[in-house]
Write a protein that binds this DNA or RNA. Structure first.
Length: 311
DNA sequence: ATAGCGCCCTGGTGGC
DNA sequence: TGCCACCAGGGCGCTA
């Protein structure tokens, strides 16, 4: 499940190779990922444009496409509907991509074989293709104007970027104070902090010595401080490692991540700190793994019963 | 306003 | 061996 570190790794991989390239063709094999957008509208909005930037917001990947000057002044074929006319006249179109659970973005040569999970390809002017794959068909890829992008529900109310140097406990603490639900699902709420999903919520809570079922508002000042630090630490380490090692995630070159989780997906295995078998429960409908010894159900002054280090 | 749940979708797995 | 029920899960939208 691509979360912030995985999407950031994809962003860096794309940025290295596709900046200033022109999109010469867009092939859609599974229009479902375009959501409400038609295949034709999608193609008309992106073909002929150049890739200006590759950005990330939370788990969203945003690729800015800029029109050639001539394209802005006079679209070759006058579009029938007003929305389309406005879009073609836009200097900038944002390719808004969310990979959800199983989506993948790959940068491959145009002559490489197509996967059965292929949904969309963007052929670039250097014969490389940006390919969107999704086994579960949950992912989304849309070509939007700036105005439309601002209305995307998930993006509109999204919380702060945890790797932004300005993000600190003063951003997190007020969010937690007004929540009575368990801390784990609260951390995964994209309005509280952007980009944290199941993997890194489990990891950050383990490193902070906080039980995942603790009511968010019950965290002490010290615990919230620790959690702020461990969220940033675990995300940074995972970005450095090119994402989490898992069966479903690879970067744009098809390379697996190298970050190895301490608790995520390790239910029943020994805790890396105290060797207690890790506990697996369901929280907010999600699989959750924690150490019953290191992560006490009550507030703790230090890092739980175990000594731990974080940067 | 917020918490909880069903839904979307498909491959893999365990039970019979 | 074959079939099927069931599970995994991010985020949206509905309900209470």
């Amino acid at each position: 499940m691509p979360e912030l570190p995985e999407v950031e790794t994809l962003r860096r991989g794309l940025e290295k190779d596709i900046l200033n390239r022109q999109v010469v063709r867009a092939v859609v094999t599974k229009a479902k990922v375009l959501k409400e957008q038609t295949e034709t509208a999608f193609q008309e909005r992106i073909v002929g444009r150049r890739i200006e930037r590759v950005d990330r917001r939370g788990k969203y990947l945003l690729i800015a496409l800029i029109a050639e000057r001539a394209d802005v002044r006079s679209p070759s074929t006058p579009p029938s509907d007003i929305g389309q006319r406005v879009a073609l006249g836009e200097p900038r179109i944002l390719l808004c991509i969310h990979l959800k659970m199983r989506g993948q973005l790959l940068l491959q040569k145009a002559d490489q074989p197509i996967s059965p999970y292929h949904c969309v390809s963007l052929l670039l002017d250097d014969s490389m293709e940006v390919r969107f794959h999704d086994m579960w068909m949950w992912g989304e890829m849309r070509a939007l104007t700036n105005e439309e992008l601002a209305k995307v529900p998930g993006l509109a109310g999204m919380g702060a970027e945890p790797l932004d140097p300005a993000w600190d406990v003063r951003s997190l603490a007020p969010q937690l104070a007004k929540r009575s639900g368990p801390i784990k699902p609260t951390l995964m709420d994209q309005r509280v902090v952007a980009g944290v999903g199941n993997i890194y919520a489990d990891e950050a809570l383990f490193r902070a010595g906080i039980h995942p079922a603790r009511p968010a508002a019950s965290l002490t000042e010290g615990e919230t401080n620790r959690l702020t630090q461990t969220i940033r630490a675990v995300l940074s380490e995972a970005v450095e490692g090119g994402g989490t090692a898992s069966e479903e995630y690879v970067d744009v070159k098809g390379v697996a991540g190298r970050y190895t989780p301490w608790v995520y997906n390790r239910g029943g295995q020994p805790c890396v700190i105290c060797a207690t078998p890790l506990t697996r429960i369901r929280l907010g409908g999600r699989g959750t793994v924690f150490c019953s010894h290191c992560q006490a159900p009550e507030p703790t002054v230090h890092g739980g019963s175990c000594e731990r280090r974080y940067r």
